[in-house]
Design a protein around this nucleic acid. Structure first.
Length: 466
RNA sequence: UCCUCGGUAGCUCAAUGGCAGAGCGCCCGGCUGUUAACCGGAUUGUUGGAGGUUCGAGUCCUCCCCGAGGAGCCA
């Protein structure tokens, strides 16, 4: 195995004269009379290692097998590079080919490919510049998320993937069953007998870890989940996946202001970490994918987020309308904010992240805390340019009677929420939390335009090939 | 799921209803230091699928499949 210190990233920092052994995959190769240049990468960093092969050093039959995509071991000496683009290069003494890559059929070329094409070869795209950078950023981001919460004493809770509560109320669920679909057990009245199923009742893939996080927050004070969630929506957009990763902190003894502050601090911390630890990769995104990424991220880390209430947001949208702005969807107090409205606020009015709070209770979930005005709830959405909603959160309703009323008012069955209500009967406390879509944040960080290109293997309607 | 646009060589794309093409890649040759190397040459086709109109369909019509963007849902 490759030990720490022996990755190509490390080799590039070694002093001239060091004898090294590099392992990796060939990106590209250039030949001249009597000299060959091979660029190889092992995924450890954005920069490739340039291997120089002088005439006669390596057998011709070996050299012929060094094609784009082939996997190599190269031994030699690190020397100063006379060419531009790299400080050092590896002067090869021995080359061993681990695995050939037939150049007639290997689909990755030296030249750029479209994202659509790379998506169809997800098993090979990880070796490309773009996807190497994407997944290194994703790794740095994930580590920074854990570090942020761990430094603040939050407990990492593993919320379940399988659930029998279809009461989470956040979109269509994937049904999970071990029943024989060709021969379903039936009740006397002819319905499917779900008591015969694995859990003795209908089961699903989770759409959120929030309710379980609330249980843990009311025992461990500050907690967070970080795991996959599933939505069976027929969503076919560049911003939706059927399987995506979500980060959900939950804090006892916290209100919506605390929640909003945590969200801002969280985004600034994690963005700062990526700026620091994945600089090469971000510079690549800034150069080749979206030339506003670096400036945007640096601006976010140093400036404050805007905060408006829903009511104020509606007023801004109405003002725009009165000044001639055409809205496809009508704006009035009580209507949900549409994509065009969110974009206007964050991209045109404020040009930075905006937190909108205190939405009408009718357009938000039953568990959000009712304000004293009786018409709004303590909800917040964090909106960012280009992406839209990146975080959704709220202060939770901790008062038993009011929660019970809201469950009834929304036509839900209180029996289904018995344990959730129990949390309000025994030792309830004010608490708040939010959910962040990891892939949405990845899009924000990298400038990548399609969410399917910031997750290793996308799951979407009709798409689960890899 | 709805709306719009698209599917032609390995990739990116062109082709008034009338001989299916270019660039790049791959391959071969050349060049003593290349950086998406360069120069020369060669190869590359079930025009997404099934029907239909027509003397003749990549092009027009119908249905289906796939992709992209927008909308809804949301993270």
């Amino acid at each position: 195995m490759i030990e720490k210190g022996s990755y190509i990233r490390d080799i590039l920092r070694q002093p001239v004269g060091t004898t090294v052994e590099a392992h990796g995959w060939v990106k590209t190769r250039r030949d001249s009379r009597g000299i060959h240049f091979i660029q190889m990468n092992d995924g450890s960093g954005f920069s490739d290692l340039q291997v120089v092969v002088e005439a006669g050093v390596v057998p011709a039959e070996t050299l012929a097998r060094v094609t784009t995509g082939a996997c190599l071991r190269v031994c030699g000496e690190l020397v100063a590079s006379p060419g531009a683009g790299q400080a050092v290069e590896l002067k090869a003494r021995v080359i061993e080919v681990y695995g050939d890559a037939d150049s007639a059929t290997y689909p990755l070329q030296k030249k750029g490919h479209t994202m659509e094409f790379l998506r169809e070869i997800a098993h090979l795209r990880a070796r490309s510049n773009t996807f190497g950078a994407v997944f290194r950023v994703r790794n740095v981001l994930s580590a920074a998320i854990h570090r942020f919460f761990q430094e603040r004493g939050f407990l990492y809770v593993h919320s379940p993937i399988l659930t029998t509560s279809d009461c989470e109320g956040a979109g269509a669920l994937f049904r999970v069953t071990t029943l024989d679909l060709m021969n379903l057990p039936r009740t006397p009245s002819g319905e499917v007998d779900t008591t015969a199923d694995f859990f003795g009742r209908p089961a699903y893939l989770t759409v959120s870890g929030q309710l379980e996080a609330e249980i843990f927050a009311l025992a461990f004070t500050n907690v967070y989940t970080f795991g996959p969630t599933f939505r069976a929506e027929q969503s076919n957009t560049p911003r939706h996946l059927a399987e995506f990763w979500m980060v959900e902190p939950e804090m006892a003894f916290a209100d919506l202001d605390d929640d909003r502050r945590l969200a801002e601090e969280f985004l600034k911390y994690t963005i700062g970490a990526v700026l620091e630890e994945a600089r090469d990769d971000l510079e690549f995104f800034n150069k080749r994918i979206d030339n506003t990424v670096l400036a945007t991220l640096e601006h976010v880390v140093t400036s404050g987020f805007e905060h408006v209430t829903y009511t104020e947001a509606i007023r801004l949208l109405e003002q725009a309308r009165d000044q001639g702005r055409q809205w496809e969807f009508p704006v009035h107090w009580g209507a949900d904010l549409q994509s065009e409205h969110e974009r206007y606020l964050t991209e045109e009015v404020f040009r930075k992240p905006v937190v909108v709070t205190d939405y009408p209770k009718e357009i938000k979930a039953f568990y959000m805390r009712l304000n004293d005005d009786g018409r709004t709830v303590r909800a917040m959405d964090v909106l960012v340019p280009r992406i839209g909603e990146i975080i959704g959160g709220s202060q939770r309703e901790e008062r038993y009677d009011i929660l019970r009323e809201r469950i009834d008012a929304q036509g839900l069955n209180a029996d289904d929420y018995w344990w959730y209500l129990d949390l309000r009967r025994y030792g309830s406390a004010p608490h708040a939390g939010f959910g962040l879509g990891l892939e949405r944040m990845m899009m924000y960080l990298t400038g990548m335009k399609n969410i399917r290109d910031v997750i290793p293997f996308a799951r979407a309607p009709g798409e689960a090939r890899f």
